[in-house]
């Protein structure tokens, strides 16, 4: 048999997976995003035994495994727990404007949300900064994380 030049055969086989995920928000998430969409309010669930308020809310306490039935309204303000400034997109191409992504700890809660910061220059962001949620207008809200347009520094 004739010899095949291995180097010329070193070409990849290209394909993609036809996967589209459709995700429900779950028993607790359904109520959280419904309140956000329809009433522009944030809710959490409280575990009295562990003295924890979960935001986003959970159906159960991950610490003691009890079902959580106490829903509490929480503020839409928080503190920048940590943040990063992103300069590239997923394909490593430069972004026209750098984006600030922050983990915002919601005031009075044990959890928080990862979201964009807006109305602030990246160099002015600092850990511990007070921020508040800016919601999209009611008509544009679809029931999802992007119903929050971004968080911005709290006006004093």
């Amino acid at each position: 048999m004739e010899k095949v030049n291995i180097v010329t055969q070193a070409q990849p086989w290209v394909d993609r997976f036809p996967l589209t995920g459709r995700y429900t928000y779950g028993v607790a998430g359904e109520r959280f995003f419904r309140e956000l969409k329809e009433n522009g309010r944030f809710f959490g669930t409280r575990c009295t035994a562990c003295d924890v308020v979960y935001v986003p809310p959970r159906l159960y306490c991950l610490r003691c495994f009890a079902p959580l039935e106490e829903w509490v309204e929480v503020p839409s303000t928080g503190t920048v727990h940590t943040f990063t400034v992103v300069h590239q997109d997923l394909d490593e191409a430069p972004l026209p404007t750098p984006e600030v992504i922050a983990f915002v700890q919601i005031d009075g809660c044990d959890g928080g949300l990862v979201h964009r910061l807006g109305e602030v220059a990246p160099e002015d962001v600092y850990i511990g900064m007070s921020v508040e949620a800016v919601l999209k207008p009611t008509a544009e809200r679809q029931g999802g994380l992007t119903d929050i347009a971004y968080f911005r520094p709290t006006l004093r």
């Binding site: 995700y23 429900t24 928000y25 779950g26 028993v27 607790a28 998430g29 159906l59 159960y60 495994f65």
Partner: peptide, 16 residues
């Protein structure tokens, strides 16, 4: 066929 629950919620329901 389709649960409202998320995966972790289903896991908790069974585990608890």
């Amino acid at each position: 066929r389709r649960a409202l629950e998320t995966g972790p919620e289903l896991a908790w329901e069974a585990a608890s």
